[in-house]
């Protein structure tokens, strides 16, 4: 079993294509939608956690590429600028997945990219603009 967190970007013309249905039904993959932003006026963005056997996963991702969906690993989309961070912790209660955690001894923050679902809650909360989403 392999698991990946991916950012899928697709053009306006494709927003009606039921890609999650295809991934599940045709490729036997487990798809968990973490975040979606799809509208008729703009391109679609889908953040998914996808898991399955390696072969199925490769085939599923090939299908996406073939129909014109751009695939990026999720981690690339979030950046914690540690040199701007003061470790104040004001962002911590706003993070829904505990991707930002505090070492209570050191009172310092660490950021776990794997837990981040790119919800963006920390972006306006940070007084020092120490988190960036390339979205």
């Amino acid at each position: 079993m392999l698991k990946k967190r991916l950012v899928l970007t697709f053009p306006q013309t494709m927003v009606e294509e039921p890609i999650t249905y295809r991934l599940i039904k045709d490729y036997d993959l487990v798809v968990n939608i973490l975040r979606a932003r799809i509208s008729r006026e703009e391109e679609g963005r889908l953040i998914i956690e996808i898991s399955g056997e390696k072969e199925a996963l490769d085939k599923g991702l090939n299908y996406l590429k073939k129909i014109g969906v751009a695939i990026q690993p999720l981690a690339k989309d979030v950046r914690w600028l540690e040199d701007r961070c003061t470790h104040c912790t004001v962002c911590v209660p706003l993070c829904p997945t505990e991707a930002i955690v505090v070492d209570r001894q050191r009172m310092e923050i660490s950021f776990d990219k794997d837990r981040c679902i790119v919800c963006g809650a920390c972006i306006p909360a940070c007084p020092y603009k120490a988190v960036e989403i390339l979205f």
Binding site: H87, C88, V90, V92, R104, R106
Partner: peptide, 25 residues
């Protein structure tokens, strides 16, 4: 407050700080 949660009116509430204890240290 520094433990990360407090109880207010019977509800557990997560806490954040604007002051940086790490930098004060």
């Amino acid at each position: 407050l520094k433990s990360g949660k407090i109880t207010v009116q019977g509800k557990e509430v997560p806490t954040g700080s604007l002051s940086s204890y790490a930098k004060a240290r």
